[in-house]
Simulated assay, not measured.
Amino acid sequence: MFEWEEGDRFSFEDSERFEEDSLCSWISEPESLCNNWRGWKRSEKIASLLYGRARDQDGGVQTLTEMCARTVAAHIPFEVVEQMMPPVPEQLQLLIAFWSFPENEEDIRLYSCLANGNADEFLRGENHYKHKSVHDPLQIGFHLSATVVVSSSGTKGQFNVAVTFDRGRITTCNCTCSANASWCSHVVAVCLHRIHQPSQVKLRAPVSESLSRLQRDQLQKFAQYLISELPQQILPTAQRLIDEILSSQTSDINTVSGAPDPTAGGSANEQMAWWLDESNLHENIHKILVKFCVPSPIVFR
């Protein structure tokens, strides 16, 4: 009786975990049901073989400045940092932006599974990363961009990826591929590259910080060069914004102080959350409901 109770106790405690397993694996085969839940974690031995080192080893004792930047990056909106007086030095701002990116691939895998219904896109993205398909990674503040060049026989092409993040969470991700889910293999590859090889990613301060250092003639030169680089895409929008700024009528652009900066992270009043592809999640939930609710044929022998 005691042995039966012990076995039953363990199975009962694990039942909630198995329910989580099925949530992000409704499209995959049964053998993968236990691999896509939040508790998934790659062993350090395998990580060292794949990436050349254990991911959790920072390579030495961190400085007090870096520890502070890491704590601020995890808990404090960057808007609050910008409003500090005296101003926070740019080098410290760069450190805060650096540590604001997620540190664990487990979260990348989880949200890729939720968006796609299985771990296939994550595995493809991992393969892209291992084959060094990520090129020209650039982090400007809280915005990461890169190009993924795929040369395999099935999916040749060049894809542009853009990822925004804040306080250890990826808030949006986009790719120029035709994948239905936003968490495609190219987004996964760029995220893994940033996590495992951050030293190979160029790091720049938010655009608003760089623009604040320009003089009037430099700002005019910057605007005209930017328009001349992409005249067909930018010129109509640039002219519309100029008309609104110079207009005597009241408009949002003239009444709101400051200007938006897509590289400066979230606002102080904004609650950061991971980017969840809700449309695909709803579609996948509909599929699993149909799968379990539609009566299956009964075969008599």
Rank of each mutant, 00 (worst) to 15 (best):
V201F: 04
E3C: 04
E270R: 06
R9E: 12
V290C: 09
E126H: 14
A179F: 04
D58Q: 13
C293V: 09
D217Y: 07
M67R: 14
I288F: 06
K132L: 10
H135A: 09
P86M: 02
C68M: 13
I298M: 09
L235F: 11
V150K: 13
E103Q: 14
W37G: 15
L114P: 00
L276Y: 00
Q83E: 15
S32A: 12
W26L: 10
Y51L: 06
P89G: 06
V134W: 04
L114S: 08
S182A: 13
I96K: 00
I288S: 10
I288C: 06
Q233M: 10
C293E: 12
E5W: 11
Q83W: 04
T147Q: 11
H186I: 01
F122N: 03
P198R: 03
C191V: 01
M1Y: 01
N35L: 15
S228L: 13
G157T: 03
R55G: 02
K45C: 08
L144C: 04
Q239T: 11
V299K: 09
S48F: 01
T71K: 13
G157F: 02
D56V: 03
F165C: 03
K287L: 14
C175G: 02
P295G: 02
P260W: 03
V150D: 15
A189L: 05
P231S: 05
W4T: 10
I195R: 01
D277H: 01
K291E: 12
S257L: 10
V256R: 14
G117S: 05
F222Q: 09
A264Y: 01
E283N: 14
N116S: 08
S247E: 03
W275N: 13
R204H: 10
S199T: 11
K221P: 00
P137E: 05
E5D: 07
I108D: 02
E6A: 08
E209C: 14
R216M: 07
G168T: 04
V163N: 00
P137K: 02
A259Y: 15
N269R: 08
W275R: 11
L235N: 10
A238W: 11
T237E: 11
L110I: 06
C173H: 00
V61L: 12
E103D: 09
F300E: 10
D14I: 04
C113D: 12
V188H: 06
K287Q: 12
P86F: 08
D56G: 15
T263G: 06
P297Q: 06
E13S: 12
D243Y: 07
N35W: 08
C173I: 00
V187F: 02
T147H: 11
T172N: 09
S199G: 05
K221F: 04
E66V: 04
E16Y: 13
T164Q: 10
A119N: 08
E6K: 11
Y51E: 07
P30M: 01
G157Q: 06
L230F: 14
L241R: 08
